[in-house]
Amino acid sequence: MAAGGDHGSPDSYRSPLASRYASPEMCFVFSDRYKFRTWRQLWLWLAEAEQTLGLPITDEQIQEMKSNLENIDFKMAAEEEKRLRHDVMAHVHTFGHCCPKAAGIIHLGATSCYVGDNTDLIILRNALDLLLPKLARVISRLADFAKERASLPTLGFTHFQPAQLTTVGKRCCLWIQDLCMDLQNLKRVRDDLRFRGVKGTTGTQASFLQLFEGDDHKVEQLDKMVTEKAGFKRAFIITGQTYTRKVDIEVLSVLASLGASVHKICTDIRLLANLKEMEEPFEKQQIGSSAMPYKRNPMRSERCCSLARHLMTLVMDPLQTASVQWFERTLDDSANRRICLAEAFLTADTILNTLQNISEGLVVYPKVIERRIRQELPFMATENIIMAMVKAGGSRQDCHEKIRVLSQQAASVVKQEGGDNDLIERIQVDAYFSPIHSQLDHLLDPSSFTGRASQQVQRFLEEEVYPLLKPYESVMKVKAELCL
């Protein structure tokens, strides 16, 4: 049975990233139509530049190519590739079939990587351009969430054990800070992308030097003109047959890092959902379990974690691919890159769409948070109580021993009897502590235990987050809708 299948058929496997999760716009960027249309555009740009620099290419040939950029006979191309065992030459023939007058000058002087690699770089750039505003929107939604809850005390956790208090907004800023680093890295790697350009079979530009009869300047002009037509500021000066596969490492490393950030955020949300302090959106008709109707599973956060793990592992592909590119190139890269580049971007696209949807509907339960604080705060307040007693004339050592005994009794009630923490009640009825009984409410005010959390939130948002989001103001209103 021949390899390949009808990918629109229910009898043929289709990647869930495309069929179930990723956005239509990201799927289109990695589609065959987008790819092969870009090949034709690159052939047109090459012909236009070659004509401008004096090669015998007519206006009629150029116009014929322009008129057929979208006229792609995919069936013919597939048949040609089956016959020739070469995808680029299959599309040269297919393009030439609908451009008979231009057929002889299509791909003039070029090698397969002229269309293959340059198209990949265009796709990487455009895919990054799709991700950047999506990530900015996630940051914006979380920034709104953090600002609104900047002063809401909550129990902090280290080692997932109760620690000092923080605020809900401050905790959210930990998430935002990681995503801001990801946004900066995505922008950097996007701006650092260079075009492969017009380089020939081993990167020496020998074929173009021959076409222009040894004119170095025209060869350099050709490279520059096509690079500018493709919208790049610069091209690699040095290439082998391909652009260095280190570029793929750079791009997928940034995406993998984004995956790590999203995994951490969504894990926190899942843990908070278990504590009943916070939940992701839950639709009115949504079913959490087929057997347990009360369940409210954090399905979206779980999906993000599941896909983020996949995204983090994909960076190993370009690392290994770059390491086995012998001399000017081997074909070890080809099949692998067809999979890992598309999957990385479709996965990143999915987790950003999902995280935006989550961040637009996060639900906080202040009463649950308050109750958990009441359970733990008495123990945390013991040092403040000791200091207040010393100020009232008591002995630190005597007070410490009193607190120690009462704390152990209260802990026994919590752990052995399943009761509430009654340390404060014990202190309130103990005559030894009568000098500070009137101060206990103040000493137990949760806001006095959150330090500068709310001020940190305000400063972080104003100095770091809002300036970073400013270039994306025009796209901030787009909502994230999930079908599944």
Results as ranks from 00 to 15, higher is better:
Phe30Asp: 03
Met389Ser: 07
Ala348Gly: 12
Val254Glu: 08
His97Lys: 13
Leu331Gln: 03
Pro10Asp: 09
Ile385Cys: 09
Leu271Glu: 01
Ser474Lys: 11
Ser23Lys: 11
Ala78Leu: 07
Val478Pro: 15
Glu280Cys: 05
Glu148Asp: 12
Ala256Lys: 00
Gly169Pro: 02
Asp215Tyr: 15
Gly240Gln: 05
Asn353Arg: 14
Arg396Glu: 02
His437Phe: 06
Ala388Leu: 07
His310Ser: 08
Leu53Ile: 14
Ile238Pro: 05
Val475Ile: 13
Met278Gly: 04
Thr450His: 00
Leu252Cys: 12
Lys402Trp: 01
Pro10Met: 13
Gln397Ser: 10
Thr94Ser: 11
Ser261Gly: 11
Arg337Gly: 01
Gly214Leu: 10
Leu165Glu: 00
Leu319Ser: 01
Ala143Trp: 00
Ala480Ile: 15
Asp73Met: 05
Val254Met: 07
Gly4Cys: 15
Leu444Asp: 01
Ser261Met: 02
Thr450Lys: 06
Ala392Tyr: 07
Tyr13Asp: 05
Val413Leu: 08
Tyr243Gly: 12
Leu331Gly: 04
Ser253Asp: 05
Val198Gln: 06
Arg190Gly: 11
Thr52Tyr: 10
Met181Lys: 08
Ala388Tyr: 05
Ser261Gln: 03
Asp32Pro: 14
Asn118Tyr: 00
Glu25Val: 10
Ala291Tyr: 04
Gly116Glu: 01
Arg303His: 01
Cys483Trp: 08
Lys187Met: 11
His91Thr: 04
Ala308Leu: 02
Gln428Tyr: 08
Cys304His: 04
Leu128Ile: 08
Ser253Ile: 11
Trp45Arg: 04
Asp333Gln: 03
Arg374Ser: 09
Leu469Ser: 07
Gln221Pro: 03
Asp32Arg: 10
His7Ala: 09
Leu131His: 10
Thr382Ser: 13
Asp216Pro: 07
Gln51Asn: 06
Lys246Ile: 01
Ser474Pro: 14
Ala335Trp: 01
Leu355Pro: 00
Ser290Ala: 04
Val219Trp: 01
Pro446Glu: 04
Leu461Ser: 03
Ser67His: 14
Met387His: 05
Tyr294Asn: 03
Leu128Cys: 09
Gly361Glu: 15
Gly116Ile: 05
Leu211Gln: 10
Leu131Lys: 07
Arg190Tyr: 08
Tyr432Leu: 07
Thr201Lys: 02
Arg296Asn: 07
Pro293Tyr: 03
Gln356Leu: 13
Gln63Arg: 09
Val405Lys: 12
Glu64Trp: 07
Val247Cys: 15
Met292Leu: 04
Lys367Thr: 02
Tyr21Asn: 04
Glu220Asp: 13
Cys27Arg: 14
Arg426Pro: 00
Val219Phe: 04
Ala381Asp: 08
Leu444Thr: 06
Asn357Glu: 06
Val29Gly: 05
Lys470His: 13
Ala322Lys: 04
Phe282Cys: 05
Gly200Trp: 01
Glu60Asp: 08
Asp178Leu: 00
Gln241Asp: 00
Lys170Gly: 03
Ala103Asp: 13
Ala480Trp: 15
Ala230Gly: 07
Thr239Phe: 03
Arg125Val: 09
Asp120Thr: 06
Glu70Ala: 10
Lys295Gly: 00
Asp6Pro: 06
Thr167Arg: 01
Asp73Val: 08
Phe460Trp: 05
Asp420Met: 05
Gln456Ile: 07
Phe28Arg: 07
Asn336Trp: 02
Gln416Glu: 10
Leu377His: 02
Ser67Thr: 11
Asp117Ala: 00
Phe236Cys: 06
Ile122Cys: 08
Thr330Ala: 11
Ala47His: 04
Gly109Phe: 00
Gly419Val: 07
Met278Trp: 09
Asn384Trp: 04
Thr239Asn: 03
Gly418Thr: 02
Gln63Asp: 04
Leu444Trp: 09
Asp144Val: 15
Cys113Lys: 05
Ile238Gln: 06
Asp191Ser: 07
Leu165Lys: 02
Gln285Ala: 08
Met389Thr: 06
Leu307Gly: 14
Arg337Pro: 01
Val198Trp: 01
Pro56Leu: 10
Cys173Ser: 13
Ile57Pro: 04
Leu272Trp: 08
Arg196Asn: 06
Val315Met: 12
Phe460His: 06
Met299Pro: 09
His91Arg: 05
Ala143Val: 06
Lys82Gly: 13
Thr382Ala: 08
Gly5His: 07
Thr201His: 01
Ser323Leu: 03
Glu464His: 05
Thr382Tyr: 04
Phe282Val: 06
Glu50Pro: 00
Ile339Asn: 10
Glu425Pro: 07
Arg33Tyr: 12
Ala335Leu: 03
Val168Glu: 04
Cys266Lys: 04
Leu271Lys: 03
Gly240Met: 05
Leu130Pro: 05
Arg33Thr: 08
Asn297Trp: 04
Gln205Gly: 10
Phe379Ala: 02
Leu468Gln: 15
Asp349Pro: 02
Glu228Ser: 07
Ala136Glu: 09
Lys218Met: 12
Leu84Cys: 06
Arg270Thr: 00
Cys399Ala: 14
Lys229Ser: 13
Asn336Glu: 03
Leu258Arg: 02
His263Thr: 12
Asp398Leu: 13
Ala235Trp: 12
Arg329Cys: 02
Val168Ser: 04
Leu311Val: 08
Gly104Met: 14
Gln221Lys: 12
Tyr432Gly: 09
Thr167His: 05
Ile72Tyr: 12
Ile238Lys: 01
Ile265Glu: 05
Val475Asn: 15
Arg20Asp: 00
Phe95Gly: 00
Glu425Asp: 13
Gly5Phe: 12
Leu307Tyr: 00
Asp182Glu: 02
Glu425Thr: 11
Gln325Ala: 11
Ser301Ile: 13
Phe449Met: 04
Gln286Met: 01
Ser334Tyr: 02
Pro24Lys: 12
Cys98Gln: 13
Met316Pro: 04
Ala102Ser: 11
Arg83Lys: 08
Leu124Gly: 06
Gln325His: 12
Ala102Asn: 10
Phe232Ile: 05
Ser253Met: 14
Asp248Asn: 04
Gly393Ser: 06
Ser257Thr: 08
Ala47Glu: 00
Ala22Gly: 09
Ile176Gly: 03
Phe36Cys: 15
Pro366Cys: 02
Val413Ile: 12
Asn384Arg: 07
Val457Phe: 03
Asp178Glu: 11
Glu220Tyr: 08
Arg245Asp: 00
Gln456Lys: 04
Ser19Met: 05
Asp445His: 11
